[in-house]
Amino acid sequence: METGSIIVFTCNWDAYSGLETAGAKRHSYQPEIIPIKLMCLGRISTGIILKVFERGADGVFLIGCPKDECKYYFGNKHAKTIVAEAQELLTLLGYSSGRLKMDSIAAGEGDKFTEKVRDFAEGLSKISEGV
């Protein structure tokens, strides 16, 4: 992984189907963005998020299924707790809060997927410019 990358964790279901739709529609987003598919966002752990930052990433964005629509029932609820914990640790470590974010899209929402990751990447470049 190169320094300055942006890691986008997607779940295998709604979020990944969004990413596939975006691909089918030939959408484009910033080249720093590297999507990584997880079976469910519930797989994420504080350790994984911290490790991404340790390796020099600029930001971590997690996209999962909408609230109450997790295919495993508790996955995105669990991810939310983990992200909150990681956020607090990152704040202590001195990282600005915009560098970690969690969001959701419904199945097949390719436009929304592209829009969200683009916004996140733009937000990060604003943070690094100190705006």
Partner: peptide, 18 residues
């Protein structure tokens, strides 16, 4: 999940401002 060892490694950055 290696979180504790990871934040220790992050702390080796001399530029870090906690």
């Amino acid at each position: 999940g290696d979180a504790i060892q990871t934040w220790a490694r992050i702390m080796t950055d001399p530029e870090l401002k906690q």
